[in-house]
Structure formats: C-alpha cells, structure tokens
Design a binder for these strands. Structure first.
Length: 568
RNA sequence: AGCCCCAUAGUCUAGUUGGAAGGAUACGGGACUCUGGAUCCUGAGGCAGGCGUUCAAAUCGCCUUGGGGCUGCCA
C-alpha cells in the first residue's frame, strides 16, 4: 500500500461514531472486523469500490481486519467468472484481504446445523405451500397475513421433512423451511420468512452436494457471526432486514449453549454519480444489448472499465474516502470524482507532447535538414522525473485549434502577425498561411523563428502571451487516440421522461477516435502507462488494443480548461 | 395506504454533552506561470417550513412538507 492521505481524518461519520463507542465500551473486545460481501453475479462498479474502500479503511484505521466474502447462496444466478473478475477488481483497488477470500458456501454445513437448532427450538417449520399460496398468505403492507396450515407440525415431523429436503426427496418449490415468527408483523420480513428453499442446481463451489440453499437473511448474519465480523455494513435497502438479522442471531446458541456472536448491521446510502447508471441489471443490459463494447468498456464506471480507462486505484480511494458514509440519498456531481482523478494524475504522470488534430507549421527561416535536439523536463515541478530529448525541425505539427486567422482579443495562441512560444523551443511569428485553392481551408501555417530565443526565452526580455506544444513532422509517431466524453447526455439518466429509457440518454458523441501524433519514444512504453499530453489531457496506453505497431491511447480525462469554459 | 429511514450552499460533507454554521468541489474575481494546467489569494452561496422547550436550537420535542425503502422460494 502506498501512503494514505489522511485528509478525512477529522471527519467522523456516523459509523465511526458507532465504532468509537464500541471501542470505548469494549463491546467487541476492541476489535474491528469488516467485510465486503458481493454476490458473484455481475461486475463491480464505482459504487462497490466506494463501499470496499471505506470498509477496508475502517479496518486499517482501527488496526482490524477486512474479509472478501462471496455471498454465493443462489447457484442459479451466480457464475464462476464473476468470482474471478470480482477478486481481481478488489485486488486492483489495493485492498488487502490477506488470506481471507471467503465463501458463504464454506459454511453450508454449519448453516444447516443452525437450522436444525431453530427447528428443535420450535422456531421453524417445513411448509408445503406453493409460491402463490405463500404470497397470498403473507398479506400486504396494510393487512396482516395468515398462518400456514403447516405451521404447527411437530418438531419431529419438521426435522424429518427438513432432512428429506436436504436429501433431495422433493422437487424445486415443493417445500420450504420457514421461521416461525409473526404473520401479523408490520415488518413483512418477519412474517415467517423463508429460511431454505429447494434448488436442484449445480453450485460453483459445492457442486451437487446440496439441493437446498439458504436465503439471504438466514445466511448473511450467520456468515458475519461465523467470521467474527464486528460491523456489518450494508446499503440502506437492508435497513428493514436488520430486525430479522438480529432475530436469527438472537435465537441461536453455540455448542456450550451460549448465544452466538452477534455483529452489528449498519446501513449507509449508496453512492450515485451524475452521468452514471449503476444498477447491475442495467449495466448488464448495456453489455448484452451491445450499447457498450463489454464490461471493461472505458466509458463505463465499472472497476474494469475504469482500470482500462486509466483511472488509478488511488484516485478512486481518495474519492471514496472523501465521501463519508451517511444515510441520506446522494447524487454526487461527477466533477468531484474528476477532481480526484486529476489530482492523482497530475502528480504521477510524465509530460509528453502530442498533436491530436494536426496542422502543418513550417519555419521558413529554419535550415532544411537541420535537426535540433532539446532536453526537456518530464514534469514541471517534479525534477526526479528527469528529462528527455525532443527533436525540432523545419516542418512541425501543431494543433489546429492553436491557430486562428481572425482571433478574438483574448486568444493567446497563434494568429497572423503574432508571436508566440513553441514550448521548450523558440519564439515563432506567423507570417502567412497557405490555403487550399478549392475549399479555402488553411493547410499550412508559415512562421519565422527567432534563433536568439532558443530554449524559449528571448535575451531582450520580450514576452509572449501564449505557449503551444508541437511535434517534429519528421519524427512524430502516429497513434490512435480515443477521446472519451461523458457516457450520458443527462445528469441523471434514471430520471426518464414519458416513454423514454435511460438508454435514450446515451451520449452519441461519447467516443471520438482520431489518428494523431505523439513523441516517438512512446512506442516502447508498456500498456497501461499513463502520461499527460501537454495541454491535451491525461492518456493511458490501452491495455487491450494497443500494440507496438498500432499504439492506442485512451483519454483518461481532459485538463481543466478555463479558456474553453469562458469561450462557450 | 400501513410500517421504517432520511433532510446543512449547485453537489459532497463536518458540526458528538444546546453557546458566532466549517471544509471539499463547482462557480466569480485576482496573483503567478514556458501547459488558458498546477499552485496561491479572494468572493458569492446553506441549517426544508412551522410551533414549542430554553437565557440560548442546525443540535431537543411535536406537526407539516419533501425524498427513499418494504408486499421474491433474489441479494
């Protein structure tokens, strides 16, 4: 782990208030143990990263531990491939779960034994009712439910039936094990919740050993208890489940007849970001219906997508730690995340020159075959990043946007008759332009240079207003550059108008692919290397499509651009 | 509709035992600058509303309003 920026240290969110209190009272023996419990049925995204980072950070902060535990209790929706991708994503985030890559399925035997204990206490029964019957008898949020006709079976019969459920004597849906609580409870979850259902399905971990699988509410608290989790942090929609979570834990005893370990469930509000859709279902839809190129499409805020886009785990972590856990709904402005992305990239990225939209610039008074070499710094404020050499020649490329024939007054760049600096090189003055005879488009800009201004300063002390970047047309390396913009055109794509879907707000101009030029030494850089293209933004060598022959760069993010803002 | 949860600048977030509402980001202005970047200075902007308790309320109580969750053999 790199050094953690403790800029949030003084912010005590409501969860730390609880932990601090528990530390003071010694509730858990001064221990903090958190976990992240993904279901292996989809990819992780920024919202999960937020939860993972914060949960992990609680453990780090209090000298505790953090578990990665797959909540693999439903074999019909879960897949092996997600176990691998999620594990890789969590590791990439820089979160250390040590040897604790755990699975709910590891505890299936124990969970079964606990169920038997529940039955023996007269607190659970086998119900033969159908799905429909159970639904009908549950009542509604305003009306109480009715008790199942099977509710008062004897303990012996329940024990026998439950064992036979386990042994595969019944078909899917034929029977369930239910907790006996209160069919009139105002909290629907307490109306005899289902504990086990029959599912003749192959499980990635346990194979065909089981044909009954535990329900979330039964499994989750027990998983936490078995692992000694102290603070079981989950999202707000589980708030109503806490009553059941506590109820199950309170009914059960260990071998010595003592109550089993009882973690505390705490709920926080999910993170939502503007211009993002986070739900698993919708993410899956984007992938499966071809709206994006895959789960790792750099446009998406999946962890895989962000990794490919070039966003660093440190940026994600700093952002996550800046947004405290709270209970109120949030829709965070993307600019806050963008700030943390730039903040991290600025420090770590070597600078490099690129020309994304090239136009030719000819220095008319520069010798034809001369190649001048400049030694330039790799970072403006970090000397340790060293220097590199850049070739300067008569024929150059500059950005089209850095020249205007009829500029407004506050345009700092090149225009006819104006002198500016070519960064690190010389002052140049625009003498005239060459236009295409038919279209009238400018195809070449002709300048003269001042040999005295070598290195970018004039001995007579004269100043120029603008500095632009450039590349030697003789040695510039061609590269594909993929410019990414926001994925949606609407701040909150989930807030749809009549008859529209979130996919209607997909930004058609989210990706622009261009053939550009970069400094030639980039040819030898590895996939995943990040750079700041001066004045153009931060870029990463694509980890999938880039090769030595065909370099591909993804734009991670633009630089802040107050000029563009003003001129709009 | 019944039950539960939530409410501090545009956004995110401190404010724990009542005692001048603080930070981040975004936005405006300025300084500096060989990136219209970075950095620095600076400005504007908020306790949803009402009633009550109190010498004193963002903080405690009640009501209203607004937002969210709950009627899977999903998690």
């Amino acid at each position: 782990m790199e050094e953690v920026e403790e800029d949030t240290e003084e912010d005590v969110d409501f969860i730390r208030t609880i932990i601090n209190e528990d530390m003071k009272t010694g509730k858990y023996g001064g221990r903090v143990h958190t976990r992240f419990p993904p279901e292996p049925n989809g990819w992780l995204h920024i919202g999960h990263a937020y939860s993972i980072n914060r949960n992990y950070h609680f453990a780090v902060e209090y000298g505790g531990k953090f578990n990665l535990r797959f909540d693999d209790t439903n074999p019909i929706t879960e897949e092996e491939e997600f176990i691998e991708s999620i594990t890789a994503d969590v590791r990439w985030l820089g979160v250390d779960f040590e040897d604790r890559l755990l699975f709910a399925s590891n505890y299936f035997d124990q969970l079964y034994d606990y169920a038997i204990q529940l039955i023996k206490k007269g607190l659970a029964y086998v119900d033969d009712s159908s799905v429909e019957e159970i639904r009908e008898m549950r009542g509604t949020i305003t009306e109480p439910g009715q008790e199942s006709p099977y509710r008062n079976r004897s303990i012996e019969e329940n024990l026998d039936l439950f064992e036979r459920m386990k042994n595969g004597e019944f078909k899917d849906g034929e029977k369930v094990l239910r907790a006996k609580i209160d069919m009139a409870h105002p909290n629907m979850l307490m109306r005899d919740p289902i504990v086990y259902r029959i599912l003749h399905a192959h499980h990635p971990n346990t194979g065909d050993k089981w044909c009954i699988y535990p329900m979330y509410d039964w499994a989750h608290g027990l998983e936490d208890s078995i692992e000694g989790i102290t603070h079981s942090i989950c999202t707000l929609e589980f708030e109503v489940h806490r009553l059941l979570y506590d109820w199950y834990l309170d009914q059960l005893d260990d071998e010595d007849g003592n109550p089993i370990f009882h973690p505390q469930q705490i709920e926080f509000a999910k993170m939502n970001l503007t211009y993002m859709v986070g739900s698993k279902r919708r993410l899956r839809m984007l992938v499966e219906e071809g709206y994006v190129k895959g789960w790792d499409d750099p446009l998406m805020l999946t962890i895989a997508g962000m990794r490919r886009r070039g966003i660093t785990p440190e940026a994600i972590r700093n952002f996550s730690l800046a947004i405290n856990f709270t209970k109120r709904d949030k829709l965070i402005d993307m600019s806050i995340f963008e700030h943390y992305i730039r903040d991290d990239l600025d420090k770590r990225c070597p600078r490099v020159m690129s020309v994304i939209n090239p136009i030719k610039l000819v220095i008319t008074n520069f010798p034809n075959d001369k190649i001048e070499e400049f030694t330039v710094p790799n970072h403006p404020s970090d000397k340790e990043m060293g220097t590199r050499k850049v070739n300067f020649t008569k024929n150059l490329y500059i950005e089209k946007e850095d020249f205007m024939e009829n500029p407004p007054e506050d345009y700092y760049r090149l225009s006819p008759g104006k002198e500016i600096r070519l960064k690190y090189a010389y002052f140049v003055k625009c003498e005239n332009v060459v236009k295409d005879r038919e279209t009238g488009d400018i195809i070449e800009i002709h300048c003269t240079y001042d040999p005295e201004s070598k290195g970018g300063e004039s001995p007579d002390g004269r100043k120029v207003q603008g500095t632009i970047h450039w590349l030697s047309a003789d040695s510039a390396l061609e590269a594909e550059v993929r410019l990414y913009d926001r994925m949606y055109t609407k701040e909150n794509p989930m807030e749809t108008e009549e008859g529209k879907e979130f996919t209607d707000y997909l930004n058609p101009n989210a990706i622009t692919i261009l053939n550009s030029y970069v400094e030639p030494f980039l040819k030898d850089k590895e996939q995943g290397s990040r750079f700041q293209f001066e004045r153009n933004g931060y870029f990463v060598i694509d980890i999938v499509d880039s090769t030595k022959e065909n370099l591909v760069f993804n734009r991670i993010i633009t630089l802040r651009d107050t000029w563009a803002k003003k001129s709009n």
